[in-house]
Design a protein around this nucleic acid. Structure first.
Length: 607
DNA sequence: ATATTGCATGCTTAC
DNA sequence: TAAGCATGCAATATG
């Protein structure tokens, strides 16, 4: 029994005492449906992509029309969301996607269309017949940018043809556009998530990395590909072995790829430009404004606190920006994409927090300029001075989701990176060996939550610690955000560390993690898909779809990690996180700390 | 006299 | 070539 506010504004119930299972989330849980109005608990639906805390309005993926972020506006007008995409009714109608609001009952009958033969919707969800499902999954794996190089050409052709089949593929593919922190995709059926089979999980790890590029892969990373493409330097990479131009990928899709790739499983420390994934001008932003922020930086900012920092754009401060005049010229495209629309030259006040936690109010306005506009932030001098920024330094505008608050980060010119710039961005000046992200740096004066890692000799995390410090300001900011969250069941970045270290006392704290644990956790991050284990008590039903077997579960999975167990002569057990063969791991599941051993199975119960 | 504001100009860059 | 943007500069406000 739960008591919570129904997020559907049209719901007269106000509080919903019971929640029905709703749409399965890719993260494994279920969106909840108000028992009165039947509306999906909007935040749950959108948590992965939009991290919306309140219902609101977003733009349609297809036509940029503003649409409601909730799934149901009225019985006959609701916005469709599935597979990480959102589209307005018009576009969905145009793309011939039939929608059914209640089980088996069609609201909008599909017109006769080839794609209709492959799709149907039940309970607001898109269903695919076997063939389409397979193709959908294959396409998704292309999106993942992982498996393609291993596929036989015939399979790739199959996918290509599938995409060709939907020559309105900009729509179709956009629907699958993964979110920044896209979690596991699952096909849906009968109110149950259909988890991909273990074998698939192994080959397609969780798409959670944020912009890493492959360090040693023969195949160019998706981000490399994407960025080459974004810079107009399409390469004949082996991604498709030259048979088909990559242009079959719509641009937004490639955007998405670039932020998903982590081919070697490491969370990249490369400072990779992150193309925007939302905002009205998302396809028009110059790469020089793409925020360059490492995975760790983002992970630390967002993961530890269960909030998501969405880097919007960055800008190198010009002399006039950093001067005493107090005006910071904003890139027009960024201003229009991410800041509130303004019709009057006077603009609107814009509240931001800097990474030290200081609150600032800038005037966001524009000047008429050659029949165009020139956007500026006025009143930035105090902030610039407080952060001791100079010309050449880089300010990074980010947004905290949920909540949508703006955060002003920075990176010093002297800290610009050497590792960045897999892309052709040119915004960084004065590169040196050092790199410091400042959500941070300057503030050695404040508590460094990562310092505890230093003694552990975890090079990976130490590096993160050295270069990235989470300011208490932003931490507090985020913590505030979190405390305001209604939907605590939102699945954010499922980092075990995060789960274990947040909100434990007023100070920024972090669980002291020893080497082995850190390694374990890192593997957890990399192969989080493997962690989507069924609850021990749950039996899977095996469903064969085409040639692929799927496990289906009634209940969402729990997070766990397969582990090897060494039985010592003393009788004690030790665990190691080595990779196991499927056969070995079949009988061993470690979910958390409490161990239960029965027969040849070792189950560690989750908390 | 100095600071601030609003606009214009011209260089740079993308298309 | 056009748009974007850094900055110059004149008009206006303030002390």
């Amino acid at each position: 029994m739960e008591l919570d506010v129904c997020m559907n504004g049209a719901c007269k119930n106000g509080y919903a005492r019971e929640w029905k299972k709703g749409w399965p989330l890719r993260s494994g849980g279920f969106a909840r449906l108000c028992d009165k109005c039947g509306s999906a608990y909007a935040n749950s639906i959108f948590c992965e992509k939009f991290h919306l805390h309140q219902t609101g309005w977003r733009e349609c993926n297809f036509c940029n029309k503003s649409i409601h972020c909730g799934c149901i506006i009225s019985r006959f007008s609701f916005e469709y969301l599935d597979f990480g995409g959102i589209g307005c009714s018009t576009c969905l109608r145009a793309s011939q996607i039939p929608l059914i609001q209640e089980t088996g009952r069609s609201i909008r009958s599909a017109k006769n269309h080839a794609s209709d033969r492959h799709t149907e919707h039940i309970d607001d969800r898109l269903f695919l017949d076997g063939s389409s499902k397979r193709k959908f999954m294959q396409m998704r794996r292309i999106v993942d940018g992982r498996e393609s190089s291993r596929w036989p050409q015939a399979k790739r052709d199959d996918i290509d043809s599938c995409i060709d089949l939907n020559r309105e593929e900009m729509r179709f593919s956009n629907m699958m556009k993964p979110s920044n922190y896209s979690l596991k995709f699952s096909a849906l059926e009968n109110n149950r998530p259909t988890w991909e089979s273990r074998s698939m999980q192994r080959s397609s790890s969780l798409n959670m990395s944020l912009g890493a590029s492959s360090g040693n892969s023969v195949v160019p990373s998706a981000s490399e590909i994407a960025e080459r493409r974004f810079d107009g330097k399409t390469s004949s990479s082996s991604f498709h072995q030259g048979k088909r131009p990559l242009s079959i990928m719509p641009k937004p899709l490639m955007n998405a790829i670039s932020i998903m790739e982590s081919s070697n499983g490491m969370i990249s420390q490369e400072r990779v430009a992150r193309p925007p994934t939302d905002g009205k001008g998302k396809n028009m932003l110059l790469s020089r404004y793409w925020p360059r922020i490492t995975d760790q930086e983002l992970q630390q900012l967002s993961g530890d606190l269960k909030s998501t920092i969405v880097p919007l754009f960055e800008k190198v401060l010009s002399a006039s920006d950093a001067g005493r005049i107090g005006r910071l010229v904003l890139p027009k495209s960024c201003a229009e994409a991410y800041f509130p629309p303004i019709s009057q030259s006077d603009g609107v006040p814009l509240h931001m927090k800097d990474v030290k936690g200081n609150e600032w109010t800038f005037q966001f306005r524009f000047w008429p300029n050659n029949n165009s506009r020139m956007y500026v932030l006025e009143g930035v001098t105090p902030c610039i001075q407080a952060l001791q920024l100079n010309a050449g330094d880089i300010v990074i505008f980010s947004r905290i989701d949920p909540g949508g608050k703006f955060v002003l980060g920075f990176r010093r010119a002297s800290d610009s990176t050497d590792t960045q710039d897999a892309s052709a961005g040119n915004s960084n000046v004065f590169p040196t060996k050092e790199k410091t992200f400042s959500g941070t740096t300057a503030g050695n004066s404040y508590h460094d939550p990562l310092q505890t890692r230093k003694a552990n000799g975890d090079a990976y995390l130490n590096k993160c610690s050295e270069h990235f410090r989470l300011g208490t300001g932003i931490a507090e900011c985020l913590r505030t955000e979190n405390s305001e969250m209604v939907n605590n069941d939102l699945v954010q970045l499922p980092i075990s560390v995060s789960e274990k270290t947040q909100n434990i006392g007023p100070m920024c704290k972090r669980l002291l993690i020893h080497n082995e644990d850190a390694m374990e956790l890192r593997v957890t991050w990399e192969e989080a898909q493997d962690l989507l284990c069924p609850a021990p008590s749950v039996k899977a039903s095996i469903v064969a779809i085409e040639d692929q077997e799927f496990e289906e579960y009634e209940e969402p999975p729990v997070f766990g990690k397969r582990t090897t167990i060494n039985a010592r002569s003393s009788g004690s057990l030790s665990f190691a996180s080595e990779e196991m063969s499927p056969k070995e791991s079949d009988n061993i599941t470690v979910i958390d700390k409490d161990v239960e051993i029965s027969g040849n199975q070792c189950i560690m119960k989750t908390q």
